[in-house]
Design a protein around this nucleic acid. Structure first.
Lengths: 151, 151
DNA sequence: GAATCATGGTTTCAAATAAAAACCACATTA
DNA sequence: TAATGTGGTTTTTATTTGAAACCATGATTC
């Protein structure tokens, strides 16, 4: 965490996010938050991580504007942790991670949880990258372009 | 790395992948690999990380079947590291990470590199999650379902 | 043919980080 | 008033990281 960004990547759109969520636990916390967990104890119970680590991670997520603390909704004197807009913006990433995991980390017939459309109960579609005109794009069909160096 | 998976997540489709790529450097290496880098020295120069760390990360990626070593294409006596199919499957995740980064880690007018369609040079579309019938889905429109416990 | 260099690592060691456990504060419950 | 639940912090120890030095191999120069 708080790792120095390497020379070349000081402006890279991939490295910056990794500084915020580039550790094992943060994404799991965020996934749990998408699942509706809000309380310190809930996260700890769900993930089984040490309390000091959870504390540090939550603090970091809040510091990066990914989660926010709000007074507990049930009148208890504690606070709850909820995703901000920025945090909710991570949903596609989590889906991508999950789909990749399902593709490559499970045996063909091994059961696993599935992400389904709440309305129809059907599994969601696979994420796919498309061009402006709708063509599906593979990695090879894309390039990175750097912005013109302004004077 | 090689972190124990917590009780609840022993079968989770998010936690398993994180064991393979859940550190700061691995995704940057993979991104560089998508950009065409193949040689140890290229990665090291691009990322500026210590050689022992790079060595360990590449070893881990190979062990997880995400990259593979092949004899150098240019006759030099060294090997090169290339993405496997599994590794290439990470492209959507990388795009998701990049898009999130662009959305939230850059000032409105701050220049940044863009991922474009090689054919048209236009920026790629935003990744979006859709239902089977094509409706766009937000996080709230989805649920996780667990497979029925078989007897 | 010997010395030098480039490449791709491994080893060593100090510093930073993570993890486990103990501790603490506050509020509620018994 | 004591015990308990929640949400942490502190302390201590184990693990990981990162920098630097070292090493092996093949190509290059002298």
């Amino acid at each position: 965490m708080a790792k120095r960004v390497s020379h070349k990547d000081s402006m890279c759109g991939v490295a910056r996010p990794l500084d915020a969520i580039g550790d094992w636990w943060s994404l799991l916390i965020i996934r749990d938050a998408f699942d509706g967990l809000r309380r310190f104890g809930e996260f700890q119970k769900s993930l089984g991580l040490a309390k000091n680590i959870l504390s540090a991670r939550l603090r970091n997520l809040v510091a990066h504007g990914i989660m926010d603390t709000v007074p507990a909704s049930d009148g208890s004197p504690y606070q709850e942790y909820v995703l901000t807009q920025k945090g909710q913006g991570l949903f596609p990433l989590l889906v991508a991670l999950r789909q990749w995991g399902e593709d490559f980390f499970f045996e063909p017939n091994e059961p696993h949880v599935t992400l389904v459309d709440r309305a129809t109960k059907l599994p969601v579609r696979r994420l796919e990258l498309r061009a402006q005109d709708g063509r599906m794009l593979m990695a090879e069909d894309t390039v990175i372009v750097v912005p013109p160096p302004e004077e």
